[in-house]
Amino acid sequence: MKVVPTMSASSDLPMGFYVSTGTGEDPDLALLSRIATGDQEAIEELYRRHSRLLLGQLQLMVGQPALAEEVLQDTMLAVWRGARTFRGGSRVRTWLLGIARRQARDRMRRQRPTPMADAEFAQRPSPNPGPEAIAIERAEARRMVAALSTLTPAHREVVGLVFGADLSLAEVARVLAVPLGTVKSRLHAARAALSRTMNEKDVNE
């Protein structure tokens, strides 16, 4: 697991200014540096690189595809305005996920929470269609998707960051601005809730 410098749980913002030489190994750093100077091509490139990841997480968080896309736009606007503030204490994608999360929470605060539309997910084609074994897996996945829709936003968020964004637990803690132990407890709680839901469905079916 990658070890990432921790951030104060109370901190809502990355602190300080980031100055990139543009020569680092992470191309995202160079992109952020260019964005900070007003390079619109750079933010477009950043969007290409991370919009799928961000939209996936936002979809999990807000539950509505259209709203998730709106929040994605808000996120990119915030990145445009705040590129100079990235200090390099985490991967850029972690920073982006943190911004997306705050944007989503801000949106959700302003409107009534909407139940996750599991039908939206279930009808999506699998990104990796394959043989019969995959088809069975897809069926299981759809059952899980339906169960995911019953999770609380906080639980959906944490499993999304772990399995959708492939963040380490330390990175998840940073994005959520919570202690590592809280991440673990949320994960266990999410799993327990999913197990209950799946078992109930099995009984009902």
Binding site: Q40, I43, E44, Y47, R48, S51, R52, L53, L54, L55, G56, Q57, Q59, L60, P65, A68, E69, L72, Q73, L77, W80, F121, R124, P125, S126, P127, N128, E137, R138, E140, A141, R142, R143, M144, V145, A147, L148, V159, G160, V162, F163, G164, A165, A190, R191, L194
Partner: peptide, 20 residues
């Protein structure tokens, strides 16, 4: 759980980039 999450997140298709 991972498979279910990826079924959700991998299936999204971001809209084309719109200039600011």
């Amino acid at each position: 759980i991972a498979v279910g999450v990826r079924h959700v997140t991998a299936g999204v298709e971001p809209p084309p980039w719109s200039p600011l």
